Each structure stands twice: as C-alpha cells, then as structure tokens.
Simulated scan of single mutants.
Amino acid sequence: MKKLTYQIKINAAVSRVFKTMLDKETYKKWTSAFNPSSDFEGIWEEGEKINFIGINEHGEKEGMIAEIAQYIPNAFVSIRHLGILNKGQEILSGPAVEDWAGALENYSFFAVEGKTELKVDVDTNEDFIEYFNQVWPNALLRLKNLSEME
C-alpha cells in the first residue's frame, strides 16, 4: 500500500471548508470528479459505517464500504475502508477487497491567516496511483471553488 498526499489552500474559513466537504449536496458536487453520480450513505460520526457510492453504466450501485475511524469537527476526518459494494452487494472479505481493507483516507484542516490548508492522505495500491494523481487535484479544486463561493 502506498500513501499519496494532496494539499490545497482555500480562501475560506476551516468551518466553511469542513461543512462544504461533508454536506450531502456539496459533497456530491466536489466528488463528481471521481464519478458523476458520487454520493454517500451514512453519517459522519466516529465509529459509524458510511458507504461511498455511485451508479455504474448498468444502473447498479457500487462503491466503497467504510467506517469513520476518527472525527474531529473542523480539524480531522479519518475514513477506514472495509470493503466494496458491487451490484448492491456488500463484499467485506476475499480477493476483491484484500488490496483495500484497512486503507485510510485522512483529511487534515489547518487554519492559516483566515484561510484553510487542507491536506489529504490516501492509502492506495499501485493500480490507482496514476488515476488518483489525475483526479484528486481536480476534486480538491472543485471543493476549493465551492468553499470560496459566497
């Protein structure tokens, strides 16, 4: 597993960026960089299960099954991946999830002179490095633009 790090400076208060990142409607907008139908099911609370979903080309729900490993409002969110959702079915063990189970996605928010520095650390396997290096910067730019809108 490799750890990738992405950072962006956003001209908005940490509380605004944090809310924009996690609010249901704005979450769908910034994560549409990964999948146009990107969404989540669950709640952003420590210890809670949360599914990150999208609809595939066959109209089937797919995505990642995770839990909120740590949640500190306006400071830090850690997501631990547990498995995958394939055609609406939860898969929590076996070859399909071995590369992902336990992977973390960490979001750290820093207030600097009234602005926000957001750092994202993502665990991934070799197969997704190139994809993530293309898509994550785009997703974070979308989050920046949404957070800076007045």
Score class of each variant (00 low, 15 high):
residue 1 M to T: 13
residue 2 K to L: 09
residue 2 K to R: 05
residue 3 K to W: 01
residue 5 T to P: 01
residue 7 Q to N: 13
residue 8 I to D: 06
residue 11 N to Q: 13
residue 11 N to R: 09
residue 16 R to D: 09
residue 18 F to P: 04
residue 19 K to C: 08
residue 24 K to A: 13
residue 24 K to S: 11
residue 27 Y to D: 14
residue 27 Y to K: 10
residue 28 K to A: 15
residue 29 K to V: 11
residue 29 K to M: 12
residue 30 W to H: 14
residue 36 P to W: 01
residue 37 S to A: 12
residue 38 S to M: 10
residue 38 S to C: 03
residue 39 D to V: 03
residue 39 D to C: 13
residue 40 F to G: 08
residue 41 E to L: 09
residue 43 I to G: 08
residue 46 E to I: 08
residue 47 G to W: 06
residue 47 G to K: 05
residue 49 K to E: 15
residue 53 I to H: 10
residue 54 G to E: 05
residue 54 G to Q: 08
residue 57 E to G: 09
residue 57 E to P: 01
residue 62 E to Y: 10
residue 64 M to N: 06
residue 64 M to P: 01
residue 65 I to G: 03
residue 69 A to F: 10
residue 69 A to L: 09
residue 69 A to E: 14
residue 70 Q to K: 15
residue 71 Y to R: 03
residue 74 N to D: 14
residue 77 V to P: 02
residue 77 V to T: 04
residue 78 S to D: 04
residue 79 I to R: 04
residue 80 R to M: 11
residue 81 H to I: 11
residue 86 N to K: 12
residue 89 Q to G: 03
residue 90 E to K: 15
residue 90 E to A: 13
residue 91 I to G: 05
residue 92 L to T: 10
residue 92 L to N: 03
residue 92 L to I: 02
residue 97 V to P: 06
residue 98 E to W: 01
residue 99 D to R: 05
residue 101 A to I: 01
residue 102 G to E: 06
residue 102 G to K: 01
residue 102 G to T: 05
residue 103 A to S: 11
residue 104 L to M: 15
residue 106 N to K: 12
residue 108 S to T: 15
residue 108 S to P: 00
residue 112 V to D: 02
residue 113 E to K: 08
residue 113 E to A: 14
residue 115 K to Y: 00
residue 116 T to H: 03
residue 116 T to S: 09
residue 116 T to V: 07
residue 117 E to L: 13
residue 118 L to P: 03
residue 119 K to I: 15
residue 119 K to T: 14
residue 120 V to C: 04
residue 121 D to P: 02
residue 122 V to N: 00
residue 122 V to G: 01
residue 124 T to W: 02
residue 126 E to K: 13
residue 130 E to L: 06
residue 130 E to F: 12
residue 131 Y to V: 09
residue 132 F to H: 07
residue 133 N to V: 02
residue 133 N to G: 07
residue 134 Q to F: 08
residue 137 P to S: 13
residue 137 P to D: 11
residue 139 A to N: 06
residue 139 A to R: 09
residue 143 L to T: 10
residue 143 L to W: 05
residue 146 L to M: 13
residue 148 E to S: 10
residue 149 M to K: 11
